[in-house]
Amino acid sequence: MSDDVYELFAIRYAHHPRMARQNFISHDVHDGPMPLDYFVWVARNDERTFVIDTGFNAETGKKRGRNFLQCPTVGLRGLGIEPDAVRDVILTHLHYDHVGNFDLFPNASFHLQEREMAYATGRLMCHHLLRHPYDVEHVTGIVRRLYADRVIFHDGDETVAPGLSVHRVGGHALGLQCVRVNTRRGWVVVASDASHCYAHFETEKPFPNVVRVDEMLDGYRTIQRLAASKDHVIPGHDPEVMRRYPAASAELEGICVRLDVAPLHQSA
């Protein structure tokens, strides 16, 4: 495999049953069950491996009322990846469900938008509503990694490695970034919380946990522009991802799917 083409995987580790009205600002959404899944992602080739986000643990899941299924390391080890061998972790942002297991990667450097660190440690955290998705121990843990020379800051759109780049989209968090990955099927965008579900970017109806609505709406268009097609956009929390893509292996059925291959069925 070329050093600028990656295998790409989504590892599901938690679940939250909820209703559609909880997932949109708009009030004209027809209500019904619309659960969320929680993922970490892996992009790898023969030269390098990137873990994208780290998830949360069972204790945090209990505190936040989420159904914790298994540690994300189950999926990683199923792919033959030992956490202490990982050298690069991309954090899309510092919310509890994207950074909570940072301590499982003791030898990694963490790639983060500079603006996200400033946001998570700045004056806007005086507002409970804005700081609620953050956990002080997670944020201070990344600050400690910074002082140990383990944080690499990015400012806007930057190439991290051949075939892989990060792009600040904001909206959901001021320093939220998505990850664009070159795969054998073309450019795939790991949207993370730039679009929680397919329905968010497809309808341009915002998710309610938002700092800047304009940036969230612009982000829906940005992720589609960066991707080879809308079937190349991977939302951050949609259970449909597990249905659209094939399992990475028989042993990882229901835990990990491949995103570098065509979906089993195309979007409408």
Rank of each mutant, 00 (worst) to 15 (best):
A14T: 06
R21T: 09
D31M: 08
L36Q: 13
V40E: 12
V40Q: 12
V42T: 08
E47P: 00
F50M: 09
F50W: 15
T54F: 06
K62N: 14
T73I: 05
V74W: 05
G75K: 07
L76H: 02
G78M: 03
P83E: 09
A85M: 08
A85D: 15
A85P: 00
I90D: 02
I90P: 00
Y96I: 04
G100P: 04
N101F: 04
N101I: 06
P106L: 04
A108T: 04
F110A: 05
H111K: 05
H127R: 10
L129M: 07
R131K: 14
D135L: 12
V136S: 10
V139A: 03
I142M: 12
R144T: 05
V151Y: 07
P162Q: 11
L164A: 04
C178S: 10
V179I: 14
T183W: 08
R185K: 13
V190E: 11
D193K: 11
A194S: 15
C197T: 14
F201M: 07
E204Q: 10
F207W: 15
P208R: 08
V211C: 05
L226W: 15
S229G: 14
D231P: 09
V233E: 08
I234N: 11
P239L: 06
V241T: 15
R243L: 14
R243Y: 11
R258C: 08
V261W: 05
A268W: 13
